[in-house]
Design a protein around this nucleic acid. Sequence first.
DNA 1: AATAAGTTGCACATGCCTGTGCAAGATCGT
DNA 2: ACGATCTTGCACAGGCATGTGCAACTTATT
Lengths: 243, 243
Amino acid sequence: MSDADASVGAAPVRATRAPRRDAAANRDALIAAAALLLNRDPAVSLEAIAAEAGLSRRSVYGHFATRDDLVREVSLRGAARIGVAARPAPIADPVVQLASLAARLWAEVEHVRVMAQLTVRGPMAHEVGEALAPLRKAVRDLVRRGVESGRMRDDIAPRTLAHLVEGAALSVLDEATTQRLSRAEGHRLVMLAVLGVVGLDWRSAGELVASSPELALPAAPPTSPPTGTASPTGTPSPTGEPA
Amino acid sequence: MSDADASVGAAPVRATRAPRRDAAANRDALIAAAALLLNRDPAVSLEAIAAEAGLSRRSVYGHFATRDDLVREVSLRGAARIGVAARPAPIADPVVQLASLAARLWAEVEHVRVMAQLTVRGPMAHEVGEALAPLRKAVRDLVRRGVESGRMRDDIAPRTLAHLVEGAALSVLDEATTQRLSRAEGHRLVMLAVLGVVGLDWRSAGELVASSPELALPAAPPTSPPTGTASPTGTPSPTGEPA
DNA sequence: AATAAGTTGCACATGCCTGTGCAAGATCGT
DNA sequence: ACGATCTTGCACAGGCATGTGCAACTTATT
C-alpha cells in the first residue's frame, strides 16, 4: 500500500496489472525537487522536497524507504551525468582539453553543484566523494600532462593545482546560481577562470577560447520535454506549500 | 548563578566582589572551540562545542543565553580580525595590493573560513554577510582599479571578477585545512591563485611575488601566549570528552 | 465501471537538539 | 577559611525531523 515497494525497475512480473505510469513521473519529480533544494541546503526537510514536487511528505515513503535513499538516488544521477561529461574529448592539447572539460561541466551545473554540496558533509560524504573520483582523476591527469608539456604552470604541485582548478570551477558554478548567468556567459567564464588558475595570461586564454572550435558553445538548450505529470528537469511546480 | 550574566565588559560595578578570571578564560575557550568546530560543520551541537572547550553543555548557558549568541560572538570576532586585515596597505599598484590583501587574509585563515561557513546558511547569514561587506568592497575596488589601470583583465565584468577572486582565495583556504599547508605555502598559494584569476600569467605572477618586498611572508607566528586557563587563540584543549 | 495502484491526512513513536530550574558540588578571590 | 562565583548533572519541556500504521480518497489502467 503505502510502503516502499515501488519497484519500477526491469522484469515486470505482471501478476495482476502494470504499475501506474504517473508514479514513475512523481518519482522523477521528487528526485528533481530534491536536487533543486539540496543545492541550496543539504539539510532540506522531506516536507519541503515533497512540497516542491507537488506531493505530500507521506507519499515520499511510497518511493523511497529513507530520506538517505532519495539523496543517494540524486547523487547517483548526478554522478552519472558528471561521469559522462568527464570523459576526455579527443583533443591533443591538455590546455584546450581542460577548458573543454570545464565547459562540459558547466552544462551540468545543477548536478555538479548538488554533488559539491553533498560532498561537503552528511552521512554519505564518502560515497559521493567516490562517485566524483573519476572527475578528479581526469582533472589531475590533465593538469599533470599540461605541466609536463610546459603549457601549464609548474610553480605549484600538480596535485594542489588540480584542487585549485576544482575550486575555481566551483566558484563560477556558484556564481552562476547566485547571479543569473546565461548559458553563454557561464560557458565562457568557467573556461577563463580555469585557464587563469592554470597559469595562462588572460589574453592568451581569451584567444584560445575564441579560436578553438572545440570550445564553442554547443547549440541545444537541454530543456527536455516532460515525460509524465510533473516536470522532471525544469521548474518542478509553481505551487508552494500544500497547506 | 547559572544564567547568562557574564558581563565581562567595561565599567565593573564591583558591588561585592570581582568576577572570577577563569570564567572569562572559559568563555574564550568556548568561542575558540566554536570557531574550530563551526569550520567543519556549521550545525555542530552545543554539546560538541562545550566538550571541545572542556566544559559541559550546561555551562555554556552561563556564558551565552542562546546558541546563536555564541555563534554571533564568533562571527563578530572573525569580522573584526578580517576587518583589520582588509585595511588597504599603502601600496600603489592595485595588483600588488590585491596580492597583499590575499596574503593578509591567509594569516587569518581560521577566521575567514568560519565566516565563509556561516555566510552560506543559517539564521544569521545576512548579518555575517554584512560583516564581510567591507572586505568585499575592498576587493571590488581593487579589481576595478586594476582593470582601469590595465593591469588586470577586462574581459570579465569587474563585479564578477571580484567574486571569482573571492572564490579562488577561499579555495586555497579550504585546501589549507584539508591538506596541511604550511604558513609559507599558503601565503604563496593565495597570492598566486588570486593573481591567476585576475589575468596574470604564472611567470609574471611569480616574479611579482618574488620581487615585491611588501608581499614577503611576515615573521611572527601569531601564537599568542595564553591569558588565562584555556588557550584562547590556538589549539583550545588537547583533552577530548569530559566524561 | 471495476479494480488495483498511488496518494493523503492523521496519529504516534523516536531521536536529536535547544533552553531552563534546581541542588550539589568545585574553585577562585580575599 | 569563608563566600561568592562558576561548574555540573539531572530532569524536563518544547521544537523539528524522520519513519510507520491505517483508513480514507483519487486516479490510471483494463
